[in-house]
């Protein structure tokens, strides 16, 4: 992948160790995502996806390498970088005792959205995610799929240029999972939002998506999904990853 200054996410030569004498959790990782791009970060458990995700989200301090979000260096200009990014975590961050609307109001405030603007954006996202009828319901009574949609609405309120999904479909049924993957692609196509999608489920990747395959902290292959398949002569992603990562991936991958 060639580097471009217009990339919404630019990760360059990232290396991270949890302890000085440990094996590198990330070793020289680079990737970039342009506006409207969907980039899947694939790899088995322990490959380094969560570490990379935490670094991009600014939850861990950089040791070596550079991360820039829409031109803002996460180390030098942390707050500006964070303001351009939305994050959907694997674990729910919603307050179960508050209503959907109260939760979204809180998250809008966390992103310093003016009340009028917040009201408009909440309305838009609830409507787009078909949650308008649920706005007065407490999150506690929502099912997993609805909660996940509220999480997505939360992450989108401040119109981020980059959206991070960390194993966002874990624990959801097949239909809901597919709806969320489709919605993430819709955001790329229609809203020109760059999406970094961390997962270990190969069926969540579309043929036109960019893919980085991570294993033991290193990127073992990277590029457009269909290009990688044709270059490696693999029938599908699962076969490709079996070739590159071996049995370790085969045992963990779940395919529809």
């Amino acid at each position: 992948m060639t580097k471009s200054s217009s990339a919404v996410l630019n990760v360059s030569n990232l290396t991270y160790r949890y302890r000085a004498d440990d094996r590198a959790a990330l070793d020289g990782v680079s990737l970039e995502i342009d506006s409207g791009g969907f980039h899947a970060l694939l790899g088995p458990n322990g490959a380094g996806k969560t570490t990379l995700f935490s670094l991009v989200a600014g939850l861990r301090r950089l040791q070596k390498g550079v991360i820039a979000i829409a031109g803002s260096d996460i180390k030098e200009n942390n707050l500006s970088a964070l303001s351009k990014m939305g994050v959907v975590f694997q674990q729910s961050a919603l307050d179960l005792d508050l209503t959907v609307e109260q939760n979204l109001n809180y998250f809008a405030a966390l992103n310093c959205l003016e009340p009028k603007r917040a009201k408009v954006r909440i309305e838009e996202e609830l409507s787009r995610l078909e949650l308008s009828k649920k706005r007065k319901e407490r999150v506690r009574v929502l099912n997993g799929g609805h909660r996940r949609r509220v999480e997505i609405a939360r992450a989108l309120l401040h119109d981020p240029q980059l959206l991070l999904f960390d194993e966002a479909t874990v624990g959801l049924d097949v239909t809901t999972r597919q709806q969320i993957v489709d919605y993430a692609h819709y955001l790329c196509d229609e809203k020109q939002i760059a999406v970094l999608w961390a997962t270990h489920l190969v069926d969540e990747v579309f043929p036109g998506d960019d893919v980085s395959l991570l294993d033991y902290g290193r990127i073992v292959d990277q590029g457009s999904c269909h290009l990688l398949l044709s270059e490696r002569g693999a029938k599908n992603l699962k076969q490709l990853f079996s070739q590159l990562v071996g049995r370790r991936y085969n045992e963990e991958a779940v395919v529809l």
Binding site: A57, G58, L59, L79, S80, L82, S83, M85, V87, F89, Q90, Q91, S92, A93, L94, D95, F107, L110, N111, C112, R154
Partner: peptide, 14 residues
């Protein structure tokens, strides 16, 4: 413990 603190931490405020 539940992970919701991370949402607070990715807020663009000191």
């Amino acid at each position: 413990e539940l992970g919701s603190m991370r949402v607070l931490m990715v807020s663009p405020v000191p």
